[in-house]
Design a protein around this nucleic acid. Structure first.
Lengths: 239, 239
DNA sequence: TACTCTAATTTAGAGCCTCTAAGAATTCTA
DNA sequence: TAGAATTCTTAGAGGCTCTAAATTAGAGTA
């Protein structure tokens, strides 16, 4: 198929791209409440209801924009991972985590929009665009952990010590990712992710402003801990 | 002053109380977007603009409602802390943390509203109602940690190993709380809080639904870790 | 008691928003 | 090239925030 793009399809794609740009601009400059169907349409020089040919409604637009952010974030992380060709797995993992925070701090509005917004049901659905993009993001970290697990492994809790209800959930998850991580390794992965997530949310949502303005050092300490937990060699950020 | 309440003042208080009830009902039943000035007024049988005599605008109302939630949460935690008269400090601390999660899971909408909403500037201001109530909440955990620190202490990192920029921020915080915790102990406190916060946000925002539906066992594991970090004796929840 | 002052409320209205409906213009397809 | 599909427009119903002006109900005072 040399030309899967008819004239109309191309136009549609261009419009969708414009929508993402406009929505993001509104988000960044005027906050998430300014990302309305009308405002986005106005930004494109269209009149409101036209956008209903592209999105089922406001939530759908929000989901699409979110998916775009997820993709960009995942790409930024993947780029950091592959930046140094000869880098060790340890270095690649740390670089990926740092890219996560870098993206979050450089794009706080987008990060908050992605991670600190209650996900409504339609966007939580398994088939949704947002869900798919979220998995793409998860994949980046997961791949690294899987690689680590397969090449060197890391210390995991004895499955017997984990509560049954947790183990059964972890088993489903382990199956869902094709058994690439056994339940107890999945547990460690999730635990690491929860820590990163909590720290970043706190920073981006300004929940910790009352005490700490700059969480960079806390983040590095967190990475140190995660590294030791995963048996990685910690190294300072290099710039 | 036997009667600081004139007839009018009483009426005003009653109205404010009604506002909180109505706003909460709307939040829980129809989501945070349904908590509008108009809808709340309608719920009270008033017509819209009347509420502008009670609140400067929508954000102000939001801040007041948030403050109410903070107070309720702090009270629930304090109640759990004081429930068993003869309980050890260890038990009181664990009970308080568990009360935090219990409140969060029983009132997910309210918890999300408090902790997983970007705080706008006016509500972040030091004098705001929300800020004051947030401090009341923080106090509950802080008091326990201070008590622990003063009676037994706990393991802290060597201040020299903490980055300067972090230390200077921690020093300000330490001063701000009257030096009741030295910077390095404050660091441990914050680290514990960040972990609890991240875990709860993740649960309430459904960010982890793709793998874990019930985070109760993860929370208990987290408490185990925090307990060992603070030198507490971990004990199972008692119900 | 009557008179003023203030607080609580109401309606009117401007300017946003979401989303539906109906028609006009454009492009694709058979 | 004629019909079908897509894109876009305007019109409009109903909701929201917030301001302004008019109305009513209490409180304080001469």
């Amino acid at each position: 198929m040399p030309e899967p793009t008819s004239r109309r399809e191309r136009a549609r794609k261009a419009t969708l791209a414009e929508v993402h740009v406009a929505a993001r601009k509104l988000l960044v400059t005027k906050g998430s409440n300014a990302v309305t169907i009308n405002a986005v349409a106005r930004e494109l020089g269209m009149s409101g209801p036209a956008l209903y040919h592209y999105f089922a409604g406001h939530e759908d637009l929000v989901g699409a924009v979110t998916a775009g952010f997820f993709e960009e974030l995942a790409q930024a992380m993947a780029a950091a991972r592959d930046e140094r060709p000869g880098a060790s797995l340890d270095q690649r993992l740390l670089a990926t985590c740092r890219a996560l925070r870098a993206w979050a701090t450089h794009h706080p509005a987008e990060f908050g929009w992605i991670f600190a917004t209650p996900i409504d049901k339609s966007n939580r659905a398994t088939g949704s665009e947002r869900h798919r993009a979220g998995q793409g993001f998860e994949q980046v970290l997961q791949d690294l952990i899987v690689e680590l697990w397969e090449t060197r492994g890391f210390e995991v809790p004895d499955p017997v010590t984990l509560p049954d209800s947790l183990m059964s959930q972890l088993r489903s998850y382990s199956d869902a990712i094709g058994g690439r991580l056994p339940p107890e390794a999945a547990h460690v992965f999730l635990d690491c992710w929860i820590r990163l997530y909590g720290l970043l949310c706190m920073e981006i949502l300004h929940q910790l402003d009352f005490v700490l303005a700059d969480l960079e050092p806390v983040f590095e300490l967190c990475l140190r801990e995660l590294a030791s937990r995963l048996g990685l060699e910690y190294s300072e950020p290099d710039n």
